[in-house]
Amino acid sequence: MYTRNEVSKLKQEFWTAFGGYMKPVPSAEGTPVNWKNYKTGIRHIYFRMSAERDRACIGIEIRHPDPGIGELLFEQLISFRKLLEIQLEESWTWRPSNEEETANTGHKVEKCLLGVNVLNKDDWPEIISFLKPRIIALDAFWAQAQYGFEGLA
């Protein structure tokens, strides 16, 4: 078993390694980007990456405080689904918000890699190989699609 501090330290080491690995990669528009803390430029729309004890995931989250506007943003994302899947070269899981869940839960589109553990450094290459092409593809998608979201949030 790991202590809370050991878990925190290993995760921090992983994200530092991931950031170093991604640092030389420019955005689709040729500018430097903080890949771990990717800024979409649209409030309430986030690109999220996670690495846990049993999986690594990457996704788009819509977390708007107004459920109606959150739904509008998700519908707009659905309208870009074909473009997203072309950039990603794969299908992802689409999860609309469930009204029965807490108000803080939003809409999500994600892809997960199961069976990896961020606490095992031997899994880091596989996790990085999973996350890297997908965050780059999300950036390429967003370079084309972000303007369709301006003024909606």
Score class of each variant (00 low, 15 high):
residue 1 M to K: 07
residue 1 M to V: 10
residue 2 Y to D: 11
residue 4 R to L: 07
residue 4 R to S: 10
residue 4 R to E: 12
residue 6 E to L: 01
residue 6 E to H: 05
residue 7 V to L: 05
residue 10 L to D: 10
residue 12 Q to M: 07
residue 15 W to G: 05
residue 16 T to M: 03
residue 18 F to S: 03
residue 18 F to E: 12
residue 19 G to P: 09
residue 20 G to M: 09
residue 20 G to S: 13
residue 24 P to S: 03
residue 25 V to Y: 15
residue 25 V to L: 03
residue 26 P to N: 06
residue 27 S to P: 11
residue 30 G to R: 02
residue 41 G to Q: 00
residue 42 I to L: 01
residue 42 I to C: 02
residue 43 R to L: 09
residue 43 R to A: 08
residue 44 H to V: 01
residue 44 H to Y: 15
residue 45 I to M: 03
residue 50 S to W: 13
residue 50 S to P: 04
residue 52 E to Q: 11
residue 53 R to D: 14
residue 58 I to S: 07
residue 59 G to R: 00
residue 63 R to K: 14
residue 64 H to E: 14
residue 64 H to Y: 13
residue 67 P to Q: 11
residue 67 P to Y: 13
residue 68 G to V: 08
residue 71 E to A: 07
residue 74 F to W: 15
residue 75 E to M: 01
residue 76 Q to E: 15
residue 76 Q to S: 04
residue 77 L to W: 13
residue 78 I to A: 10
residue 83 L to F: 13
residue 83 L to I: 06
residue 83 L to M: 10
residue 84 L to A: 01
residue 85 E to S: 06
residue 86 I to L: 04
residue 88 L to F: 13
residue 91 S to Q: 15
residue 91 S to D: 15
residue 96 P to A: 03
residue 100 E to F: 12
residue 101 E to V: 00
residue 103 A to Y: 12
residue 105 T to K: 11
residue 105 T to I: 13
residue 106 G to Y: 15
residue 107 H to R: 02
residue 107 H to P: 00
residue 108 K to C: 14
residue 109 V to M: 03
residue 109 V to F: 01
residue 110 E to Q: 11
residue 112 C to W: 13
residue 115 G to K: 03
residue 116 V to W: 12
residue 116 V to T: 07
residue 117 N to S: 04
residue 117 N to T: 02
residue 119 L to A: 04
residue 120 N to W: 15
residue 121 K to F: 09
residue 123 D to I: 05
residue 124 W to Y: 09
residue 124 W to F: 07
residue 125 P to V: 04
residue 126 E to Y: 10
residue 127 I to T: 02
residue 128 I to H: 04
residue 129 S to K: 05
residue 132 K to H: 08
residue 134 R to T: 08
residue 134 R to P: 08
residue 136 I to Y: 12
residue 136 I to K: 09
residue 137 A to V: 06
residue 139 D to T: 09
residue 139 D to K: 03
residue 140 A to K: 12
residue 141 F to E: 14
residue 141 F to Y: 10
residue 142 W to E: 08
residue 143 A to G: 00
residue 144 Q to H: 11
residue 144 Q to N: 07
residue 145 A to Q: 02
residue 146 Q to H: 08
residue 148 G to L: 04
residue 149 F to R: 06
residue 153 A to D: 12
